[in-house]
């Protein structure tokens, strides 16, 4: 395990954004973290990177055998960029407008590997070539605004991977990109992961992205785990009503032929507020199954993730209304 997160909690003065999530990630594997805005997926990743400056983080984050919660900030900073790296949603605003892409890629490499400026620059050119940017030597001297959206995200990937990290956290890396470019970027991340056996945490609200790249999926709702299972099982036999709702609301090419006249099903209601989250299961106010057969436990008791479904212990769902044997209760 390169990363082992246990009972992670991240709190802000205004409320708790992540309320006890656990997962592990092996080298060379991809974990897809799925959820709506405010589900706590980005906050979790920033907490792992030690980038949450005003938040209180508790629980345990063990990176390659080393506990990061409570570790000195300087130690986490050494790991950051060197052994764990991150790419972000909007590659234009995430790159500094005043420095050339070559300088920006070389910066972390020089710092962490203590190389000369020249060596770091060579590394930047090499990385640009690796992420598929044509004429890398010339383009290293250009500024981010000279690059297209997809090319900028390639630059971000080159920057993140320059120090050969063991963990790559990608926070909505394709959301700001055109659909055709999205596919190229995902393919690039997949290829790099195979070549380097890097562990990838792919944060997204897009189930299509998850289907493409993830080995395992963590579905988050209101700062908690809703369902955690191998990707295959999430798509073949989703157990949690929220996961089912998410999958049902994905647009399919066959949508027009469905019996309800082609209307796309949506999960009713809005994501829960951090300030006043619903009691018990945070999903119950929007849950179709609870609405059909209300159960007091859903209102009074927060469900713990427990094994459910054909995957046995690897498929865990936090729902009171799921029969452990696989069917509905």
């Amino acid at each position: 395990m390169i990363l082992q997160v246990r009972d992670l909690r991240v709190s802000f003065p205004a409320g708790t954004a992540v309320d006890g999530i656990s997962f592990g990630l092996e080298r060379g594997r991809t974990l897809g973290v799925v959820g709506e805005s405010g589900s706590g997926k980005s906050v979790s990743s920033l907490a792992i990177m030690g980038l949450h400056r005003e938040a209180a983080v508790s629980g345990s984050i063990v990176f390659d055998g080393e506990e990061l919660v409570g570790a000195p900030a300087s130690r986490v900073r050494e790991l950051r960029g060197r052994r764990m790296a991150m790419i972000f949603q909007d590659p234009l605003s995430s790159l500094h407008p005043f420095y050339t892409v070559g300088e920006q890629i070389a910066e972390a490499y020089r710092l962490h590997l203590r190389t000369s400026r020249r060596v770091a620059r060579e590394r930047a050119v090499e990385m640009l070539a690796e992420v598929g940017i044509p004429e890398p030597r010339r383009r290293a001297d250009e500024y981010p605004h000279h690059f297209s959206g997809g090319m900028r995200q390639r630059v971000m990937i080159a920057m993140a991977l320059s120090c050969e990290p063991d963990l790559l956290i990608a926070d909505e890396p394709t959301t700001a990109l055109d659909v055709t470019v999205q596919a190229q970027i995902l393919e690039l991340i997949r290829k790099i992961q195979e070549d380097r056996a890097v562990a990838v945490m792919m944060i997204t609200h897009d189930l299509g992205v998850v289907a493409r790249v993830a080995d395992e999926v963590l579905v988050m709702y209101g700062g908690r785990t809703a369902e955690h299972a191998p990707a295959r099982e999430i798509f073949r036999s989703p157990r949690h009503p929220y996961t089912r709702g998410l999958l049902a609301s994905v647009l399919r090419l066959t949508a027009g032929e469905e019996e309800d006249g082609g209307r796309l099903p949506a999960i009713p209601g809005n994501p829960p507020s951090l300030l006043a989250p619903p009691s018990g299961c945070r999903f119950h106010p929007r849950c179709a199954r609870y609405a059909a057969a209300p159960d007091d436990a859903c209102v009074t008791e927060a469900p713990e993730p427990r094994p459910a479904g054909p995957g046995g212990a690897t498929h865990r769902t936090a729902c009171h209304l799921i029969d452990i044997s696989g069917g509905r209760r």
Binding site: R80, S94, L111
Partner: peptide, 14 residues
């Protein structure tokens, strides 16, 4: 508060 500052921190810069 710009995203590129977050990127700089994510690189592990001082």
């Amino acid at each position: 508060a710009e995203p590129y500052i977050r990127t700089a921190r994510a690189k592990g810069l001082h």
